[in-house]
Structures are given as structure tokens and as C-alpha cells.
Simulated assay, not measured.
Amino acid sequence: MSTLVDIRKLHRSFGGPAVLDSIDLTMAPGEFVALLGRSGSGKSTLLRVLAGLDTAPAQKLELPVRRSVVFQEPRLLPWKSVIENVALGVRRADARTLATQALADVGLSHRVDAWPLTLSGGEAQRSALARALVREPKLLLLDEPFAALDALTRLRMHDLVFELWRKHHPAVLLVTHDVWEAVALADRILVLDQGRFIKEIRVDIDHPRRRDDPRTSRIEAELLKELGVEPLHA
């Protein structure tokens, strides 16, 4: 199997204990990986290194050139229209055409000329996804992109991300606190604790995945236990 991401002995600290403690990570092209961990475990630090927003020493650090990030906040420029935000930084003559197609992919063809402040939370995050996809990334990095959304919008975004992944097939690294989100979407789930991977689970269950499926329930319970959350008993 070919490798898109290959990291060996990555270390990051900020003057105290290691935030990332000599970790290894590989990802295949088109693989969907979810990263779980308690607050302060190093999840966002790892994502920032993968995105090129932070540097850290490593024995090996191989990453694709084409990478895009979607953060928890949409980070749209309020003085530019939605399509201008999506096309921002695309150095091609057909940037607007590409942005129009990306907005169609996320169901926002009717909001092309809207201003960011008129968007709902879900529409703003879909715009941020379109901005990431218009760059045709080999690696899509999602840093808790649904955390600020209401429960129903969040479920709709799960379906959208899955459909976009199936259509464009980038490798995806999803950082999340939501265990079910990880189980519902990912091929592989990693648990990070104190800068080290302590658990890896492959989810070999066809989509769409149901929460009442005994197989997903077992995986969810196992992950919650790793995160220090014991199931409630009646």
C-alpha cells in the first residue's frame, strides 16, 4: 500500500513536558482517520504540524504539498462575498469557476454572492469546506469543524463530509472530541494521550453506520473507556 503521510519520531514541546512525544503516523491516500483525545493531549498541535502552521523536529516528515485545513471557526473574511472567500488564494484563471463548483458540491449555489455575516453556522462551515476543497487537497485536515454547531446541523455536516470525501477522495484527518463522530466517519481511529498514541482501532463497517448497531456500540464503548468515560448503567 502506498503512503501519503509518513511521520517518524515527531517531537514537540513548549518548554515543559512533551506535547508530542516521539510519535509515528502513517496515512494512505484516500484514508479517513479520526484523532481522539482529552483536552491537552496534543491533537491540535499535531494537526498544526501536518498543516505546516507549526514546526517540530522529526526523524522523518513526509507530507503532500497540497493540504487544506478547516477549523472550528469558519474564518471567512466579512468584507468578501462567499465566492470570493472560497476562491481566495487560488492562483488560476478559472478560480471563480472552481469556486462555483465547490460551492455547488456543498449545497450553497444559492449563496454564491452572499456576505458571510448573513450565513447560518452550518452555511458558514460549508463555505469553509468549499474553500478547502477548491484547492483539490491530497490531505484534508479538519480541526473540530462541527463543535460549534447544533446537534441536527452537526449530523447533516457528517453526511456532507462523508459524501465530499467519497467524491473527491482526499486523505482526511479529523480531530474531534466526539467519539460517535469518529466511529460514524473514519476508517481508522487513533487515541492520543499525553503526546502518545495509546489506541488504534480500524472500523471495518460499511456506511452508513448506525449507532444502535452492536458493532459500532462496542467500538464506541471501547473508545470511551480509553478516554476515561465509563458507560452508565441503569
Rank of each mutant, 00 (worst) to 15 (best):
M1E: 10
I7F: 14
S13P: 08
V19F: 06
S22K: 13
S22F: 03
D24S: 13
M27C: 06
A34G: 08
L36V: 11
G37D: 07
G42M: 04
S44P: 02
S44R: 06
T45G: 12
L46P: 02
L47V: 14
R48Q: 11
V49I: 15
L50D: 03
D54I: 05
T55D: 12
P57H: 09
P57L: 10
A58C: 06
A58W: 02
K60A: 15
L63K: 05
V65P: 00
V65F: 00
V69H: 01
V70D: 01
E73C: 01
P74F: 11
P74L: 11
R75Q: 09
L76P: 10
W79L: 05
K80R: 15
I83M: 14
I83T: 12
E84H: 07
E84V: 03
V86Y: 09
A87I: 09
V90Y: 13
R91D: 11
R92Y: 00
A93S: 13
A93H: 09
T100V: 03
L103K: 09
V106I: 04
G107S: 07
G107A: 08
R111E: 04
V112W: 01
V112F: 01
D113N: 13
A114W: 02
W115H: 14
Q125D: 06
Q125F: 11
A128K: 04
L129A: 10
R131W: 06
V134E: 04
L141H: 04
L142C: 08
E144L: 10
A147W: 10
T153N: 10
L155G: 08
L155S: 14
H158F: 10
H158A: 03
V161T: 08
E163T: 07
W165V: 09
K167V: 02
H168D: 02
P170V: 04
A171E: 11
V172M: 03
L173S: 12
L174W: 13
V175D: 02
V179N: 06
A182D: 05
V183C: 04
A184C: 10
D187P: 12
L190R: 08
L190F: 13
V191K: 02
L192Q: 07
R196A: 07
F197Y: 13
I198N: 04
K199F: 01
V203Q: 00
D204N: 14
P208C: 13
R209M: 04
R211Y: 09
D212E: 15
P214Y: 10
T216H: 11
T216F: 13
I219S: 04
A221T: 15
G228Q: 05
G228I: 11
V229H: 03
E230V: 15
P231E: 08
A234Q: 10
